[in-house]
Amino acid sequence: DLSALRVEEVQNVINAMQKILECPICLELIKEPVSTKCDHIFCKFCMLKLLNQKKGPSQCPLCKNDITKRSLQESTRFSQLVEELLKIICAFQLDTGLEYANSYNFAKKENNSPEHLKDEVSIIQSMGYRNRAKRLLQSEPENPSLQETSLSVQLSNLGTVRTLRTKQRIQPQRTSVYIELGSDSSEDTVNKATYCSVGDQELLQITPQGTRDEISLDSAKKAACEFSETDVTNTEHHQPSNNDLNTTEKRAAERHPEKYQGSSVSNLHVEPCGTNTHASSLQHENSSLLLTKDRMNVEKAEF
Rank of each mutant, 00 (worst) to 15 (best):
Q205L: 04
K69I: 04
E32L: 02
R162S: 14
E99T: 02
Q59L: 03
L146R: 13
K55D: 10
T163L: 06
G199H: 13
K222H: 12
R132L: 06
A220T: 09
Q205H: 09
R77M: 14
Q18W: 13
G56Y: 01
T247S: 08
K259I: 11
G210C: 14
R165Q: 08
N157H: 10
V232T: 14
S176F: 00
E83D: 06
L217Q: 09
E202S: 14
K221F: 05
F45C: 13
E9Y: 01
K293Y: 01
L155Y: 00
V82H: 01
Q154N: 05
S266N: 12
P33Y: 01
L27A: 01
T166N: 07
R70K: 05
S186L: 03
A220P: 02
N246A: 11
N52I: 03
K49H: 04
N15A: 09
T233K: 09
L5Y: 08
Q125E: 12
G262L: 08
N267V: 09
L62H: 00
R6Y: 05
G262R: 10
Y260N: 02
A252K: 02
I20A: 04
H40N: 01
Q261A: 14
V34L: 04
N65K: 10
E142G: 13
A220R: 12
L151F: 06
K250E: 12
A193T: 09
S150F: 01
E9V: 01
T277L: 11
S122A: 14
T248R: 03
S126N: 13
Y260C: 04
D218I: 07
Y260F: 04
L62G: 02
A16F: 00
N246T: 02
A4V: 02
R174F: 09
R174L: 00
P141L: 08
D200E: 04
E214G: 08
K64N: 02
V34Q: 01
Q239H: 05
T211D: 07
F45G: 15
L2Q: 10
L137D: 14
G128E: 13
K87E: 10
L29Q: 02
L158E: 14
P33F: 00
R6F: 03
N105V: 15
E22T: 04
L151K: 13
T189I: 07
Q261Y: 07
E229L: 14
A91I: 02
C46E: 02
S126K: 04
N52C: 14
K221C: 05
S35I: 15
D39K: 13
Q53Y: 15
D39M: 10
A4M: 01
R162F: 02
T68C: 09
N191V: 03
G56S: 05
D231E: 15
R174P: 01
M296W: 06
A220L: 15
L86A: 11
C90H: 12
T163Y: 04
Q239P: 06
T149S: 10
N297L: 08
V153T: 15
N242Y: 08
F78Y: 14
I30A: 12
R169W: 07
R70H: 05
L289S: 14
L291G: 10
Q154L: 11
S219N: 04
S156L: 06
L94G: 01
L50H: 15
C26Y: 00
Y260I: 13
L48Q: 12
E148S: 12
Y104D: 07
S176Y: 00
F78A: 15
R251F: 14
F106L: 12
I206Y: 06
V265T: 12
E8M: 10
N243S: 09
Q11D: 03
S35Y: 13
T275S: 12
K259N: 13
L203Y: 11
G210V: 09
P24T: 00
L5P: 11
K31G: 04
E254A: 12
K221I: 15
C46R: 01
Q201R: 10
S139I: 08
V82N: 04
V190N: 14
I215V: 10
E22R: 03
L203D: 09
S35C: 05
L137F: 08
Q261F: 13
G262E: 13
S281V: 12
L136G: 12
D95Y: 00
I41Y: 15
L86W: 09
Q80K: 09
N102S: 14
S58M: 09
L155V: 08
Q11A: 11
G210E: 15
T68S: 08
K64T: 00
R70C: 09
R212H: 05
A133N: 10
G210S: 05
L290G: 14
I123L: 12
Y104R: 06
C273T: 15
T211Y: 11
K69Y: 03
E9I: 01
L21G: 04
N246S: 13
E148D: 11
K87N: 14
S216W: 01
I124R: 08
I67L: 05
N102L: 13
C38E: 01
R162C: 06
Q138G: 11
L94N: 00
L48Y: 08
N15M: 07
N191F: 02
I124N: 10
S35E: 10
R165P: 09
G262H: 09
K134E: 12
S122R: 03
K300E: 11
E271V: 13
N111Q: 02
A220K: 02
A279V: 10
Q125I: 00
F42P: 00
T248E: 11
K49F: 02
P240A: 12
S126E: 10
I124H: 04
D1K: 08
V265S: 10
L203F: 10
F227I: 15
I30M: 00
I20V: 07
K49Y: 04
K192N: 12
C38G: 00
R212T: 08
K108N: 03
N243Y: 14
L27Q: 02
Q147C: 05
N242F: 14
V161P: 11
K250T: 09
E99D: 07
E148Y: 09
T189L: 05
S228V: 09
S263C: 08
C38N: 00
N157V: 01
L137W: 07
I20Y: 13
Q11T: 13
C60S: 01
K31W: 02
N143R: 11
L136E: 14
S264Y: 10
Q18R: 03
